[in-house]
Design a binder for these strands. Structure first.
Lengths: 204, 204
DNA sequence: AGCAGTTTTTATTCTCGATGAGAAACCGAG
DNA sequence: CTCGGTTTCTCATCGAGAATAAAAACTGCT
């Protein structure tokens, strides 16, 4: 009651604006995101945005924050739903699938955040460092487990390998076209590449 | 003689402008590339750009064209320098190294082109379709060879796998920091992941 | 009716690509 | 070396489009 977590009309409008911002951000990038476009998508007059946010940057900032958080929580939830005692390499495959699903079909926010962060002005990127780190840390932990279980090629540096893998996933947003390949196809390819790519060589 | 391929001062200035455009493009994206910034990097007054190019888009267009061409030719050259009869999987590893070197240290142009193309306005992207295809085709051919030689996991769709791999490479530009990891480290990790990721399962 | 919260209308200001009128640098011929 | 022409670039400024501010109008709730 004290908190305005209630789903009032105002809250819904505000959410529509943030959603619209993510939508535009995803397609146009940071510099290309115009308030007029956001307003149109959100079904609002442009200046109305200023009732909720005091500047364009503040809006974008929030959209990115929501996106990073969502990316992390969706992956985390997928992992929570899996048997906790499954081999780490299997849990990693689950994370791969969750990440791709989120990025490619579930959340404009997550996709926008992941793809836009690198273009943000330094000050703003700084503000999201922590969230970004939190997100990557989920993965780091997974990779560490994989290593403990002896399923990681010892010649691979875990940190570098992880970034290469995440890159493969993130870039899918640039080329994947729902009209062409199926989402499942991409997930399958990514999972295979990650599994076999990270895998320790077979016993000789 | 007939052609002005000579390295006149004018040609050098022009090149500086294109270089600067690539530099800014790489960091700010298409919409964020302002002529004022390009001019500053190129050590020129902004309107001077109009002596060489008739519009912002024309400048960006050229920067991208140069970049795509360079990306392709650097990989092609690296392949040409390798023994033609080496196993395709080894040649692929060579291409991976060349691509990463180009992207990360050799050429702002190539990096800008590769990473910016998806953001370009449709009309402009259209103009570069062919160049992009030429570039990807080099890789496609490599993967096809790998498959013919039986080193590709038959469960992998070659096209999808290729895009996933290229994504891993392209995204390195977002996170690799020369001050931290060594370039060789990234190359090594990427090569291992690609080799083992694509590899057909060992004989049972 | 009257008021708080919300949204639109109208104005203002800023940013940035573009242009046009020449200034400066360069170059070849006498 | 100097004069005229050409190439290269600068300065001042315009104008469109965008962000933001201010004010007015609307909406439902009591």
């Amino acid at each position: 009651m004290t908190e305005a977590a209630r789903d009032t009309k105002s809250a819904r409008t505000r959410r529509r604006v943030v959603d619209a911002a993510a939508h535009v951000l995803l397609r146009r990038g940071y510099a290309g995101t115009r308030l007029a476009d956001v307003a149109e998508v959100a079904q609002v007059q442009a200046p109305a945005i200023y009732y909720y946010f005091s500047s364009r940057d503040e809006l974008i900032d929030e959209a990115v924050a929501v996106g990073l958080d969502r990316a992390r929580s969706l992956v985390t939830e997928a992992l929570a739903a899996a048997p906790a005692d499954a081999p780490a390499i299997d849990r990693l495959a689950i994370a791969v699938a969750a990440h791709l699903r989120t990025l490619l079909t579930h959340s404009d926010h997550a996709a926008a955040a992941v793809r836009t962060v690198p273009q943000l002005p330094e000050a703003m990127r700084e503000r999201h460092r922590q969230a970004q780190r939190d997100y990557v840390d989920v993965w780091r932990a997974l990779v560490a487990q994989v290593r403990e279980e002896g399923d990681l090629d010892p010649a691979l540096d875990p940190g570098t390998a992880l970034m290469v893998v995440l890159g493969a996933l993130n870039w899918t947003a640039e080329w994947w076209d729902p009209a062409r390949g199926s989402l499942e196809g991409v997930i399958d390819a990514a999972q295979r590449l990650v599994r076999d790519g990270l895998a320790a060589a077979e016993e000789p």
